[in-house]
Design a protein around this nucleic acid. Structure first.
Lengths: 341, 341
DNA sequence: CTGAAAGCGCTTACAG
DNA sequence: CTGAAAGCGCTTACAG
């Protein structure tokens, strides 16, 4: 905080020979105050470089204009674009943002929630930690502060939730592969029942079904951490099969890139022998050779939307808490990993 | 803030029939209070789920335990790793973090600084906006709150500054190219006199000098925004020369990747005909083919270090403001773009 | 149109 | 070891 002398309302009021109340009102453009007084006060405030103590203000008004954001991992690229959307939108509405990481730890997640509430956040934006199983504590927090979930959500928590059209996106991606004549389509997904992975898997199944392609258990590979390394590992598993797949749908770009690197290593032709589709449209998608067909996730828009909803709920508290899911549409970006141009 | 009933010190004091002062002291483990009282108070506080109003506390004590962080762009990958370091270190010391973006806009940068101070941040961590020219306003803020700069710094601001060994890193990178027998080494750098670009350019010049290789103006290419696209564009310029370079040192990985993509397009052999070195060791460095030799920037460590210094200065205010630069050592990671293994 | 006063929830010097 | 009281800087119902 300010190390040296700070100008306060009291000081202004003394110099102007009017009361603190009037100074406060003048500064806040209260209609009661005469234009002349308003002018005098503002002029002096400006001259003395007065800055309101937001702390005292917040303490008094019970409003802090702070939004708390809790995400599993700040350095995840997709998260980063969401954060950008949140910061931008919050700024537009005059809110500050406090960000913290749950590191996918459920206990830490609850702690952060608590601190943020205790600190006076007006509302919370949260993307759930992976293994969020007991939502009881979160439910009790719901009574105290508006909460909006995004990206990693749960229908066990009655609040507004912003997601992309996970299932539809996956459906379209697989449909695209089928349209190219692919039939043995493998999927690389997550073991844990994460919201996103489950939805994408559902889309995959629905697309196969819609085309009367039987689901083959062998082609469904799961891993705890759907990373580049594991993309490589699972692709090696696929390549060791007697009947190899003719396409791979990875539920993250990272895993898809691991797949491509492994296919390249064995000089398997992409997409002729095996086509690859990812999910995210990260920067890497155009850096890998061949470039990656992938679902474009509009992170910034998701962040903005979540923030807009939260602010609306702060300013207009909702009485009955219900799960309300808003889906943001995505597009498939077709590149060389599925299409020979 | 809390929507419904909140437990306060007063309430605890009433239920226990002791004064608010005693309750406050008991909760803060003041040595004066008898163990029995402390126990009674804590037990009840726990039972009633008492959470201190940090706002009132901060207002009273002039300490908020908030660090403000201002960066040009939150979704820049390298920034992201720095943020991770900051968040981790801050959490360890019990500080919350407020993050905002200057978007490389000098005016916005000052505004953010002001709001953060006004909001009561105990200290500020900042990476400067690109065209920060007038530091007067920042200097006046320095009187009010401890400031530590990182990554994008300026010696016009007397405070602690944490950077990587930019010049040394660039020197080593160019030295590596020279060691491979390269002599016509081009550099892709920034036009604007950004701290990082200038330092890296200095390292480049020093390496050439140390090896008696004359500096060739033609091989020094600058651009406003040292991005992938511009990396491509400048590489096209280099390829149109009668005497092409035999190596390219790009001061960012993105530009280096643009260079590689352009070289690949013209089937120019990397590294035999033209070797490429980048700067950052971003994830993309191992995704591009050939993989990129680049300087590893330890972002997390930089973030941690900056935070450690800031907290030290908050707890132990410095009297005389001087520029104090702390350099973090980096390593060159050698890959296929300079070395045929 | 303006002012005096209470109060937000906490900490802490002072007194006992 | 404990309590009464002041005060952090602001806002706002009440009164005039």
């Amino acid at each position: 905080m300010a190390k040296n002398h700070t100008v306060t309302l009291k000081e202004l009021s003394k110099k102007l020979n009017i009361s603190v109340s009037t100074v406060s009102r003048a500064l806040n453009d209260h209609p009661d105050i005469s234009p002349i007084t308003v002018d005098r006060v503002k002029r002096l405030a400006n001259e003395l470089n007065y800055v309101p103590n937001l702390f005292a203000k917040g303490f008094r008004t019970k409003k802090t204009n702070i939004l708390g954001v809790i995400v599993p991992n700040v350095s995840h690229i997709y998260t980063t674009t969401i954060l950008k959307g949140i910061l931008d939108e919050a700024e537009l509405s005059g809110y500050r943002v406090i960000i913290s990481e749950s590191k996918n730890d459920e206990t830490k997640q609850v702690e952060m929630l608590q601190t943020m509430i205790q600190f006076g956040a007006d509302g919370i934006l949260m993307s759930l930690a992976k293994k969020t199983s007991s939502v009881n504590k979160i439910l009790s927090m719901l009574q105290r502060v508006p909460l909006v979930l995004f990206d990693k959500v749960s229908d066990k928590i009655p609040c507004t939730q912003i997601v992309i059209d996970e299932e539809e996106a996956a459906y379209n991606a697989v449909q695209h592969l089928i349209g190219l004549g692919k039939e043995r389509i493998a999927i690389l997904k997550e073991t844990e029942n994460s919201y996103n992975s489950e939805k994408r898997f559902a889309g995959y199944k629905r697309a196969l079904e819609a085309n009367n392609i039987p689901l083959k258990e062998k082609l469904i590979l799961s891993t705890e951490d759907i990373s580049l390394i594991n993309g490589k590992r699972l692709t090696n598993v696929l390549l060791s099969m007697k009947k190899r797949p003719d396409a791979i749908f990875a539920i993250t770009d990272n895993a898809a890139i691991g797949a491509i690197q492994t296919l390249n290593k064995f000089s398997i032709k992409i997409p002729e022998e095996i086509a690859v589709v990812g999910f995210s449209n990260s920067a890497s998608a155009t850096i890998i050779t061949p470039s990656l067909t992938t679902v474009d996730q509009p992170g910034e828009r998701l962040g903005r939307t979540a923030t807009t909803y939260l602010i609306k709920e702060i300013q207009n508290p909702i009485e009955d808490l219900v799960t309300k899911t808003i889906e943001i549409k995505t597009n498939l970006v077709v590149r060389a990993s599925t299409f020979k141009g």
